[in-house]
Nucleic acid binder design. Structure first.
Lengths: 237, 237
DNA sequence: CAGCATAATACTGTATCCATAATTATGAAT
DNA sequence: ATTCATAATTATGGATACAGTATTATGCTG
């Protein structure tokens, strides 16, 4: 996606990145209308680069452009999550497989170091920290896979997933479980068991989906309204 | 990534689509500079929607935007093909698996009809026709998989692959081989053998990569000109 | 009182214009 | 003659202005 980032990035890229952060931080909530001229004013720029940035975000699936109707932050339905997580499981599983085969001893040390950091964040109970380091670990595996396009696709999908609230880790026991899964994945990589690493990573992702579903169910059950927050909203197709 | 295509599409979308076609037709060759104002003049529009269209194409990886340097049609290196084809094999394999499980009898009939059409194109020796129907068949499987995001990712990658010359089918025996592979895939689907369908589709994609590699090798060996049309240019990272 | 139509307002989409940066060509100096 | 520096030209990036369309609100009519 990013053009050869030598030379200073264009303004529309900066803007796109800032908007991404605001979307990920849920400052711009899913379904919310994106007010072009308000944002342009706020950033002290004209609408032109802002509109270009929105085109990019639309291509990434983070916002939905409705011709003559404006721009809205994409809402993910449960259906979308059911589609994306298995896909991620497939892709990240493959990453783990490739990475296991290609990791040098030095790479392995880096992975161990990252995992130790993860252990520490978990011990501290720092959920945000855990989330970040977890991301770093997965990212490292993607780079070790040596397949730029695989990494690219995963990155794109992960951005979309970040549209949902990420605090499934706050679920009782989920953080500990996630950590445990990571331990097993790392162990498989350490022992150069690529097939196991793939299977464990695959399961890890599906486990993440299950946790999210459980949380959504919990959030929904207190008020047993039949047609409540169900995901009949379309993704961005 | 197309925004909700209800309502008339915006101008920048029309332009993006026309540019895509020109790129796929290799009228705009990989590595070629995209002259903004020449195109704007040619289409009788201003540069603004054209620039927005280029942002979209850049997100898709079809062109590369170099800040302050202009826009160039993406060149794929052999390395990129080595990355993308295995990835496509993985994804389309999964598609075949899911489609096999979910296809209704009516769906199966549609697939059979498509395959018959493929057989006829092959019999006629119509390579372009074969290419098109082949595309339709794969597309149909993606839809049957029922996973919109899986389909989306495959579509995106296929667009990128269309940057390369597509006449690997002109290779001696390749068309016949491709047809044979399709026969086996369809047979597996017909017998509801999802695992086989997945494996066969996976092999089908890798087989396509091998054919392309063979063609490139052949194109390179006859004329040993040192700086010929080789693709050492970077993809679009 | 309710529903429909019309008008006004506001936002998207496109064009034109201006400034800045990069590349190329020309000229001078070694 | 070749190389480096400077100037000019050209294209990209950003801003502002304008037009068209959709939505909403208000008023009128049934």
């Amino acid at each position: 996606m990013s053009p050869t980032s030598i030379a200073q990035p264009a303004l529309y890229q900066e803007v796109a990145e800032r908007l991404r952060q605001r979307i990920f931080a849920h400052e711009l909530q899913p379904g919310a209308w994106v007010d072009e001229q308000a944002l342009a004013e706020q950033y002290g720029i004209s609408r032109t680069p802002l509109r270009e940035a929105l085109k990019v975000l639309a291509s990434e699936g983070l916002v939905t452009l409705k011709p003559r109707r404006g721009c809205y932050v994409t809402e993910l339905a449960e259906r979308d999550l059911d589609d994306i997580f298995p896909l991620m499981a497939l892709l990240e599983g493959r990453c783990a497989f490739e990475a296991t085969q290609k990791a040098s001893p030095a790479d392995l040390k880096r992975l161990e170091a990252l995992h130790d950091k993860l252990e520490r964040q978990a011990a501290k109970g720092d959920i945000n920290g855990f989330f970040e380091v977890n991301h770093d670990f997965h990212q490292a595996l993607q780079e070790l896979s040596g397949n730029r396009w695989l990494k690219q696709v995963i990155d794109d999908l992960r951005k979309v997933l970040k549209l949902t609230r990420r605090d499934s880790l706050r679920l009782e026991g989920r953080l500990k479980q996630s950590l445990e899964e990571h331990r097993h994945i790392l162990a498989a990589i350490r022992e150069r068991d690529a097939a196991s690493a793939e299977a464990l990573m695959h399961a890890h992702l599906l486990s993440g989906r299950a946790a999210l579903a459980k949380m959504h169910a919990a959030a929904l059950s207190p008020s047993p309204s039949p047609a409540s927050g169900r995901g009949e909203r379309i993704g961005h197709a």
